[in-house]
């Protein structure tokens, strides 16, 4: 156990699996799989496993996703790390191929593959094509592909181990805004389930549901609400598909108040799905949904920071739900 950064935790999981599976491959673009951490050995997958297994070519995300899929179909466990600007370029391979092949082949196709899709949209000034948090919605919509989104280094490691061992294609969303998080992460390999939400706090007055880069704001608001005497059940979805309906329903049956919080665009954001599932199963609850407006993120920090959902917005919406 040691305090570890996000990427160190992820690469630790990958390194372990690559040592067990002598043919497992990793494809990257411009981000070599290298991580260091105070008091721990440097992890350099390229150096340790060689360029036959750990490889980059040019800027071509369709190749990266397609090659990962093809390697999986040939029986080789494969992981690719697609940087944020290109996380839509690979959509066809994941949506129209990886998502459909098992079904199309009557269950024959094997796809022990993971698509790590980096996403941003947290940085004032980046704007436009360099802000793309909304892909959580796009990928979660695909049948046949699991779409997960850890929000802590500890989950990032356990969910990476589970994703690699899963025989289904997994889209593993990486909100790059969380890259500076550090926490205690076990050294040994462990699995974190790909179908279970996590309760980050318990309480009887209000359920707040979010995921990925939304979680730090939710945790801050939860702390403030708890301090003012409001019992908050903060739920980290962790997996968008499959979605842990049971945990959501149980919580709102108790609190009767549900607030969803997303950095994704408002229309069809993960919170929309959360509210629909709860509304189908819980009578007499009240709902609110916070999300980024249906507008591309503008460059100006004045515009962007006003639009980007934050803990203050949660406090305001919670007050309305509780009032």
């Amino acid at each position: 156990m040691a305090r570890k950064s996000w990427m160190y935790s992820v690469l630790e999981a990958v390194q372990y699996e690559m040592r067990q599976r002598k043919d497992m491959v990793w494809l990257f673009e411009l981000t070599p799989p290298v991580a260091s951490n105070p008091g721990k050995p440097v992890i350099n997958l390229e150096k340790e496993f060689g360029r036959t297994r750990v490889n980059n070519t040019g800027i071509d995300e369709m190749w990266m996703a397609g090659a990962t899929l093809g390697a999986g179909l040939a029986g080789v466990t494969a992981v690719t790390y697609i940087p944020y600007q290109g996380n839509g370029m690979c959509f066809q391979m994941i949506q129209n191929h990886a998502g459909k092949l098992r079904h199309m082949t009557g269950g024959d196709a094997e796809m022990p593959i993971v698509f790590i899709l980096e996403m941003t949209g947290q940085t004032p000034g980046f704007a436009g094509q360099h802000s793309d948090y909304e892909i959580d919605t796009y990928y979660a919509h695909i049948p046949g592909v699991k779409t997960v989104i850890p929000s802590t280094p500890r989950d990032a490691k356990g969910m990476m181990a589970s994703a690699i061992r899963d025989r289904n294609p997994v889209v593993y969303l990486y909100p790059a805004g969380l890259r500076n998080l550090v926490e205690e992460v076990p050294d040994d390999q462990y699995e974190t389930p790909l179908d279970k939400a996590a309760l980050r706090s318990t309480g009887g007055d209000l359920t707040i549901v979010s995921s990925g880069a939304g979680m730090p704001e939710v945790l801050e608001a939860t702390k403030r609400l708890q301090e003012s005497g409001v019992g908050v059940e903060a739920i980290d979805l962790r997996s968008l598909k499959p979605m842990d309906t049971e945990t959501l329903v149980k919580s709102v049956q108790k609190t009767k108040r549900l607030l969803t919080f997303d950095q994704s665009y408002y229309t069809l954001c993960p919170g929309a799905e959360v509210i629909a599932r709860v509304a189908e199963n819980v009578d007499g609850a009240r709902y609110k949904r916070i999300a980024f407006p249906d507008a591309p993120p503008p460059a100006s920090p004045e515009m962007f920071l006003w639009m980007r959902p934050n803990a203050e917005h949660i406090m305001g919406a919670a007050k309305q739900l509780l009032g």
């Binding site: 408002y266 916070i290 980024f292 407006p293 249906d294 100006s300 959902p309 917005h313």
Partner: peptide, 17 residues
Amino acid sequence: GLKNVFVTGSVRAAQFG
């Protein structure tokens, strides 16, 4: 920031819930 999404009008501010 809510303007210029379409030719006319503004989109709704969704960040306040």
